[in-house]
Design a protein around this nucleic acid. Structure first.
Length: 803
DNA sequence: AGACCCGGCATTTTT
DNA sequence: TGCCGGGTCT
């Protein structure tokens, strides 16, 4: 690894970078870790780094590999980069892990053992493939729910395990492995890959094919990984492989320099396999010499940052980082306590109205919550107040049923053996093909080991004839669409498949028709963007062509560096994908936006998770309550709690100017009113940064069930607002009062209340969900984390209230 | 084939 | 409480 010349230039690229950013951008060509705090200009550093490397001729565009997690991030990187330099970013290897793996597998499909037109299964497709398989092989779906099987298979792949590699000690696991094996065979037969497969197969190809591996190791001189804290085990292994780094004999150390950019404090995806530990592993295994911390924050005022810093300081095993700003303290962080979730929403909407009156744009106001279910009250309240809002998440464009149907037809044009697509539309729109006929066909296909499509000719009788009719229809469509451009292919398919007609005739089908029209538009703009020729299909490839980089003469230094471009010994430049194939790939890898009210100036509603990477002038974080945030499922273990804290950290650091934290004493959840204590995270925030909009809740009186400031009185209803702040009397003793047997009182005959934590000698600690009856008949529904929800007779059960 | 009903279930999400 | 999926009824 050589050192790059000292920067010492006054290129406009480097203007306005702070010293740390500058250091990161101009790092020498060696492995490095950048700890990029929230709002520290991470994307800017990444893109400027690439631009700087290119501009100074340290690397050619083909020598760059830049990996992100989301298409959005990849797109952003490309946009910014092309704004800095006149370079063809579409030719560069900038993309998501899965997008790049797809590109890689397309280029080397033969070596990867895949058909050229392999299709990608999304999670829905995967699940239906598994369900189909379960039916076929009589898998007991009671014991092995398809969802779980899918989860199992996905996890195995993420661990880099093929069926033969899984250590199955118990019969259940053995069965699952068996299904995994069958699933693999099925996918292979049908020429489809799931998301995990894209990653795993790429990894294996690199691992097992020396020529290919060394080619890419030589080729990529600079490897940049965004959101490194979110990488899983397989992704990390893939990085090591492509960078030629590690203790493994396969790895020769001759690969490029890896620049890992991430923030351990913002690692919030452990539940889907993300390993923060990859950061420390990276430092060790790549013998990283330089770590740069970007701690200067350009987003928020210091009251907000100090709150975030204080909160996250309660986590252990951090790499260590403290955000700072040159901006002033700004406004205090506002804390609000509501009597009910309903009134919490009400207060919030009132506050928003004021903000809007003060000329804050609606899209600069965000409401963040821990779980999706919380959005309902807020939506209702906003709706009633006639304030436009937009909820993030939910169904995205390419996930809609009508779109999936249309895509299934298109996929069958490319690959008739795609059984998932075949089954999706063989009788949609209805053409008199019943379950029986399909089962017969499936049996035949299974017996011959061929696809459904290929089995059709062997199916006799009426069913055979009808299904053959469907196949013939597809064949005709394939003939008709040959040579047409993508837009016309789709139009013709929509008409001839009967999809459009079906939805036209359907009551309330207008939206679906509209979406199908939108599909045509999407295809057209895809063709434009990807630069496919207008008339001929197959002119350029979305994927492959790693060397086909248009180098603009205007960019200084590029041509010189491009000379060391790796010769392409694999002929992958020649592989082209038809616009249709490329579009189908695009649809699978990029589910598109969720379409709700996009573009409008509306209040933004989303989970904390989906807020990552975004920023707003005003942020409301709602439902900051024990059990909700931190979530009860994460509270039991240390790591889970720390992830919740990181989540809160992410949430807080979204706010630029004004931050509200709210919690409610009661909340409707699963149809039951729950009493919630305020989140422990409040206690971890610096008092001097906070402003209480409601009287500060007294420290909770532990034990006895009187922790809530509602006192010993009746249960809350949504109309009980008026009393909320006058009944704090029981809470004013800050000391712990030992649990004691209560003499039953009129108001609270059981001595228990909903939300109360109790201890049971057999089931351990649990939470009271419901109380019923009185006296000897009194019973409580209690949720025990380890044993589930139980109904217990209070006269019998030995329960002790716990703090 | 389509409507309806009931029961189970209910962090977080991207590709 | 509300949704979704599976099963059943017409």
């Amino acid at each position: 690894m050589h050192s790059l010349a000292a920067p010492g230039n006054t290129s406009p690229l480097l203007h306005n970078l702070n010293p740390e950013q500058l250091a990161a951008v101009t790092l020498p060509a060696e492995h490095a870790l950048i700890l990029a705090g929230a709002g520290s200009g991470k994307t800017r550093v990444l893109t400027t780094r690439i631009a700087w490397l290119l501009q100074n001729g340290y690397v050619s565009p083909g020598g760059i590999l830049a990996v992100t997690f989301t298409n959005k991030a990849a797109k952003e990187m490309k946009t910014r980069l092309s704004a800095m330099l006149p370079v063809n970013v579409n030719g560069m290897w900038i993309g998501t892990f899965h997008g790049l793996c797809n590109r890689f597998l397309r280029a080397h499909y033969k070596n990867a053992g895949l058909p050229q037109a392999f299709q990608i299964l999304d999670t829905q497709d995967q699940l239906s493939a598994i369900k189909r398989l379960c039916k076929q092989y009589d898998i007991d779906t009671e014991r092995f729910p398809p969802k779980q099987l899918g989860w199992f298979i996905g996890n195995c792949k993420e661990e880099g395990l093929r069926p033969k590699d899984v250590v199955a000690s118990d019969p259940d696991t053995r069965k699952k492995v068996e299904v995994y094996q069958l699933y693999e065979e099925q996918c292979q037969r049908e020429g489809v890959v799931d998301f995990g497969e894209l990653m795993l197969r790429s990894y294996e190809l690199l691992r097992d094919n020396t020529a290919i591996r060394e080619h890419y190791q030589r080729r990529f001189r600079h490897i940049l990984i965004d959101e490194f804290q979110d990488t899983n085990k397989l992704q990390y292994a893939w990085i090591k492989m492509i960078a030629g780094q590690g203790s493994d004999g396969l790895l020769n150390g001759g690969g490029g320099a890896v620049l890992a950019v991430g923030d351990d404090d913002q690692s919030i995806y452990a539940f889907r396999g993300a390993r923060v530990g990859n950061m420390t592993d990276f430092v060790r295994e790549f013998a990283v010499q330089r770590q740069i911390k970007l701690e200067e924050n350009y987003r928020s005022y210091s009251n907000i940052l100090d709150s975030a810093n204080a909160l996250i300081s309660h986590n252990s095993r951090r790499l260590g980082k403290n955000l700072r700003t040159v901006q002033g303290a700004g406004e205090p962080v506002r804390v609000y306590e509501a009597p009910s979730d309903f009134l919490e929403a009400q207060w919030m909407v009132d506050e928003m109205k004021q903000l809007i009156r003060d000329d804050v744009e609606r899209k600069e106001i965000a409401v963040l919550y821990r779980s999706n279910a919380q959005s309902r009250v807020i939506e209702t309240t906003l709706f009633n107040a006639a304030i436009p809002y937009r909820v993030y998440g939910g169904l995205r464009f390419f996930e809609r049923a009508e779109i999936k149907h249309a895509l299934a037809y298109l996929r069958l044009l490319e690959n008739p053996n795609d059984d998932t697509s075949f089954l999706r539309v063989v009788n949609f729109p209805a053409r008199g093909i019943g379950t029986r006929s399909i089962e017969q066909l499936q049996d035949l296909a299974k017996a011959t080991g061929c696809s459904l499509h290929d089995a059709v000719s062997t199916l006799s009788g009426r069913p055979g004839a009808v299904i053959a009719g469907f196949v013939a229809k597809l064949d005709v469509l394939r003939e008709q669409t040959a040579g047409l451009n993508l837009k016309d292919i789709i139009k013709l398919m929509l008409e001839n498949s009967g999809l459009l007609e079906h939805y036209r005739n359907e009551r309330e089908g207008e939206d679906r028709v509209e979406n199908l029209d939108e599909l045509v538009n999407a295809a057209e703009s895809f063709v434009m963007q990807e630069g496919f020729g207008r008339e001929a299909p197959g002119m350029t490839a979305l994927v492959s062509s790693p060397e086909a980089l248009t180098q603009s003469p205007a960019s200084q230094g590029l041509s010189g560096a491009a000379l060391d471009a790796v010769p392409d010994e694999f002929g992958d430049t020649g592989e082209t994908l038809s616009p249709l194939q490329a579009f189908l790939t695009h649809a699978a890898l990029e589910a598109g936006d969720n379409m709700a009210a996009a573009g409008q100036d509306a209040i933004q509603l989303m989970t904390v998770h989906s807020s990552k990477g975004l920023e707003f002038d005003c942020v409301f974080i709602t439902g900051m309550e024990e059990g909700l945030f931190p979530h009860e499922n994460s509270m039991s273990d240390h790591d889970g709690l720390e992830e919740e804290r990181r989540l809160a950290y992410v949430a807080i650091t979204r706010a630029r100017k004004r931050l509200y934290l709210s919690h409610s004493q009661t909340r409707m959840l699963h149809g039951q009113t729950r009493f919630n204590l305020k989140s422990r995270f409040f206690d971890e925030l610096p008092e001097e940064c906070l402003k209480y909009l409601t009287p500060k809740q007294q420290p909770m009186l532990a034990g006895g069930g009187f922790g809530s400031s509602w006192g010993g009185g009746g249960y809350a209803t949504n109309s009980g607002a008026g009393r909320a702040y006058s009944t704090g009397a029981t809470g004013q003793f800050g000391t712990y009062s030992a649990p004691q047997k209560e003499v039953p009182r009129k108001e609270e005959p059981t001595g228990l209340r909903k939300g109360q934590k109790v201890f049971h000698t057999k089931f351990g600690e649990g939470t009271v969900l419901t109380l019923e009856g009185a006296g000897d008949d009194a019973r409580a529904q209690i949720n025990f984390p380890r044993h589930g929800t139980k109904w217990l007779a209070l006269s019998v059960a030995k329960l002790t209230p716990v703090p």
